[in-house]
Amino acid sequence: MKSDDRELQSAKKFDSSRADEYETQSRIALAGYEACHELAACMLAATLGPGGNRRILIVGVGGTAQEITAVSRIEPTWRFVGIDPSEPMLARAAQRLEEQGLSDRTELHLGTLDGLSTDATFDAAMMLGVLHHLPGDDAKNAILNDIANRIAPGAPLILACNRYVYAKKPHLLAAWGERWRMHGATSEDVKVKLGKILQGADPPASEDEVFSLLANAGFERPEGFFSSLFWGAWIAWRTAL
């Protein structure tokens, strides 16, 4: 199975029903959802500098398009290209961008990065909440390489995903369940919600593995800036040619 086929296969679980609940559920599943996206925007602005006509690639934009919302709060002249293989999730993103008046600064594409020309060189890329949904290292390496081939040498990548094998961190998994219960879920609800989250998920086994994947794709100097239970967020730079 090709890497883009794996991405499309992973996207199938983000059907209409899951897309409908994503806005609320993502904020419960990730304690600090808003903070992570705000800090990601701040890290990007601190790296690229304020102002200008920057073009930012957003991989996995579907659902809330929160990356674009957060960056736009401090950089009103930057433009975005967002891509997502899930049609329902991309539709939710389009709706959110329209509501916030950001549609004219954003191009949305349904599909995978294979369908996006390598001639379009971006000033930076963001990929939050995608990597742990891709099965196996081959698919993870492929998407990171696809990003590297579409951003300028020396450009930053903001990456965020779950890391650790869930079953090997039972205390974190239990705390994750309590997070849902804190927001009104019953014990049975928690089992269902965790089951949905774990469905088909294959996170990197450690932060070191995240760094290894980045290095294999030509990214250097990874630096963490946010952590929440299984979740981590980093900035890294495409190796300069």
Rank of each mutant, 00 (worst) to 15 (best):
207 E>S: 15
33 Y>R: 07
218 G>S: 03
115 G>P: 02
224 G>K: 11
41 A>I: 09
215 A>F: 08
236 A>K: 07
121 T>R: 13
219 F>P: 10
26 S>Y: 07
35 A>L: 14
168 K>F: 02
31 A>H: 10
89 M>L: 04
63 G>N: 02
127 M>C: 12
85 P>C: 08
25 Q>K: 14
106 T>H: 05
61 V>H: 10
186 T>E: 08
75 E>G: 14
5 D>E: 15
126 M>E: 06
45 A>I: 14
11 A>Y: 00
160 A>W: 07
162 N>P: 01
197 I>L: 03
167 A>S: 13
49 G>K: 05
147 I>T: 00
109 H>W: 08
153 P>I: 12
126 M>T: 03
168 K>V: 06
170 P>L: 03
93 A>V: 00
139 A>H: 05
220 E>F: 08
61 V>L: 02
107 E>Y: 00
166 Y>W: 06
164 Y>I: 11
49 G>A: 07
229 L>F: 04
98 E>C: 11
168 K>Y: 04
164 Y>V: 10
109 H>Y: 08
77 T>F: 05
28 I>M: 07
187 S>N: 09
23 E>I: 06
40 A>G: 08
77 T>S: 15
94 A>G: 13
136 G>C: 15
160 A>F: 11
198 L>E: 05
29 A>E: 09
60 G>A: 10
62 G>V: 07
163 R>M: 02
71 V>E: 11
109 H>I: 10
35 A>E: 13
141 N>Y: 03
116 L>R: 06
74 I>Y: 09
29 A>N: 10
83 I>E: 00
69 T>E: 13
104 D>Y: 01
196 K>R: 12
74 I>M: 01
131 L>Q: 06
6 R>A: 04
15 D>F: 00
50 P>N: 14
206 S>T: 10
180 W>G: 15
84 D>G: 08
123 D>S: 03
35 A>I: 13
140 K>Q: 03
143 I>V: 13
22 Y>I: 07
143 I>G: 02
146 D>E: 12
2 K>I: 10
7 E>C: 02
88 P>Y: 08
